[in-house]
Design a protein around this nucleic acid. Structure first.
Lengths: 189, 189
DNA sequence: ATGCACATGTAAGCTGTTACATGATTTC
DNA sequence: GAAATCATGTAACAGCTTACATGTGCAT
């Protein structure tokens, strides 16, 4: 038995926040869920159709002049029920695959400078993430205080901040460690 | 163009540490790489054959009485070169999918007690991971000091410790926050 | 007797990515 | 005139997971 597709629930969740089109959902993923969830069109459109067939969402086609027709989806009561059922299900074991660490542990023959470069890049990326998260936190705190599940969104943002900070700290620590070994290729000793 | 299969490199990396069978590699993943990499037999055996066809690894079949034959693989010079090339390649953007956070942000209608339970489970799991990592660190520090890339393995373990600690801290913070809302279902306010 | 460790492998099926196809409108 | 945004979708392919198939020896 294959694992449960989580795309279904991500879409249902997005539509539970507000109705929208596949395009809207993609934007929602890229803007709001970005640091903890990703979806792409190749998954969104087929799964949306599937959800509609199952009666978990309903479709309304909006036609406006001079722009492509929009298929706006709304979550149904059955969809909400399905989403809530899933929320209570235990977390499935996720496949861990951290490419940077895998590379690092096998990198005994690689010059330290190359590794430092990779770590610095990673650090820079995480600093951008952290910046974005601080911004998101501010927007949430200054936004409408009756937003549904506001404190849960804040908790999500906080998770991101914790992870980003941990990653940054580790990158710094590891860069410092590698620099101690000197500029030569001394990883194998 | 599809993403590069990383299984190839994980196997090549494992065999660069020491030669072994598919079974050995699986154990290596489960024991040593566990917290940052996973592989399963369904990938290992076919990819191993493929690597052999490409001349990146060589196979020796060991036959011993009373036990199944073992196919022991050794990395070749070409294999090492391929591995080292990959190590220098930039990190591919990874798909982020944190199920717990996805569930959390959509959980406004779920009683806080259920969320706290999930967070407590996650925390317990991460505490086990942390314990394991501390053990692994001790074994590395007390093991042979000429082990190839020892400090890189220690850096990997350190990454795990950072992440696990960050996760534990976040779980505690979030549990406390949810408890402040009281035992009732008050997530939507 | 039961289960675990050893040991290799395949097949089905789902999941997910990329690239392609199409085309209008708005912004620079 | 070019590029970005809006908007929907498909097809091909790769990658990965699960379940299954098979069998011995050892420990409890």
């Amino acid at each position: 038995m294959p694992r449960l597709s989580k795309t279904r629930y991500a879409l249902l969740g997005a539509l539970s926040v507000r109705p929208g089109s596949g395009y809207d959902i993609k934007k929602f993923c890229d803007n709001t869920l970005a640091f903890f969830w990703a979806e792409n069109y190749g998954q969104i459109y087929p799964v949306l159709r599937q959800l509609e067939e199952e009666g978990l969402v309903s479709k309304e086609t909006e036609i406006a002049e001079g722009r492509p027709p929009r298929n706006v989806y709304h979550i149904t009561d059955e969809g909400r029920a399905e989403l809530n059922d899933w929320l209570l299900l235990p977390l499935e074991p996720a496949t861990v695959r951290m490419e940077l660490i895998l590379k690092l542990v096998f990198a005994a023959d690689i010059p330290a400078t190359n590794l430092i470069e990779k770590l610095a890049e990673k650090k820079a990326k995480e600093e951008k993430t952290l910046e974005y998260l601080v911004g998101a936190e501010g927007r949430l705190r200054n936004g409408p205080q009756d937003r549904k599940g506001l404190h849960l969104w804040l908790a999500g943002v906080s998770a991101g901040k914790h992870f980003a900070s941990a990653t940054i700290a580790w990158c710094e620590e590891t860069i410092a460690m590698l620099q101690q070994y000197g500029p030569e290729n001394r990883n194998s000793e």
